[in-house]
């Protein structure tokens, strides 16, 4: 398990006087699914933003496969292997469902600067996109505009984009938020498949404790931007700091 893929060292970001992520040093290994938990405002999404590059770090570094990517642009990190699904649905609303996925595959294949061929003549892209849609059960809606999809289906598409990207590191930010009870399993099964593959690095921000229990190999706890606990699920959940500080309420709910 010592095969470190992603690592943050003293990663910090300050917004004015507020330290949103505070000296987080942590590494993530291949074949491991890590759940990131903590109360609202603990800095989970901000930590994700620092790793995938949407927010520049105030201090510290991010390393992917040993390479320092702290200064790289978001798109460069994506090509290096950081893949991210967003908490708030973040798609291309007036393009078709298929086109949304095609764009991801086209980016991966570096075909964006192909100026004089017809986009639809790249059948390899379309086939791969259709395959990705099938995995989230959206193949029948491929021709629809994204803006016409239900919220649950938009969440599925959000996940499909990440699956299509096939990154080294998968980052899921509350992938089932707002999904109905019968829709969520499609997404959770996919994440489980990724985990069972034993080669991928998966980071999962999630509030639902039952999901974390079934999926996580490891839990890290963020509290006020700092790393408060790190370990196997049973251990972390039982630890005093977690019980007292903020898991207490969540555990009662379960």
């Amino acid at each position: 398990m010592a095969n470190t893929v992603l690592e943050t060292r003293d990663l910090t970001v300050r917004f004015g006087g507020h330290v949103a992520v505070n000296n987080v040093t942590c590494s993530f290994n291949a074949g491991e699914l890590t759940a990131i938990v903590g109360p609202n405002g603990a800095g989970k999404t901000t930590y994700f933003n620092l790793i995938s590059g949407q927010i520049p770090a105030s201090g510290g570094t991010v390393h992917l496969n040993g390479r320092d990517i702290t200064r790289d642009a978001v798109s460069v990190r994506t090509h290096l292997g950081i893949g991210r699904a967003f908490q708030l649905t973040n798609l291309f609303p007036n393009l078709s469902v298929l086109e949304n996925v095609r764009l991801v595959i086209q980016a991966k294949l570096n075909k964006g600067f192909n100026l004089f061929s017809m986009a639809d003549s790249h059948t390899d892209i379309s086939l791969a996109a259709e395959a990705a849609l099938k995995r989230v059960n959206l193949q029948d809606l491929a021709a629809q505009l994204v803006s016409e999809l239900s919220h649950g289906n938009q969440r599925k598409l959000e996940v499909a984009l990440l699956i299509a990207l096939e990154p080294t590191v998968y980052m899921f930010d509350e992938p089932t938020a707002g999904m109905s009870v019968d829709e969520a399993p499609v997404v959770l099964d996919l994440i489980e498949e990724l985990k069972d593959d034993k080669t991928r690095t998966v980071l999962l921000v999630e509030h639902k404790m039952d999901v974390i229990r079934t999926l996580a190999d490891r839990i890290i706890v963020l509290h006020n931007g700092a790393l408060a606990a790190d370990g196997v699920p049973a251990e972390v959940m039982a630890s005093d700091v977690v019980q007292e500080a903020y898991m207490g309420k969540a555990l009662e709910d379960v």
């Binding site: 967003f86 973040n90 007036n94 393009l95 764009l103 991801v104 980016a107 964006g112 100026l115």
Partner: peptide, 20 residues
């Protein structure tokens, strides 16, 4: 072309276009 599709993606959501 593929380029034109990227332009439309950027028009729709430049943040996500960068992210993919």
């Amino acid at each position: 072309s593929p380029f034109g599709r990227v332009l439309q993606a950027i028009r729709e959501n430049d943040f996500r276009a960068e992210a993919i």
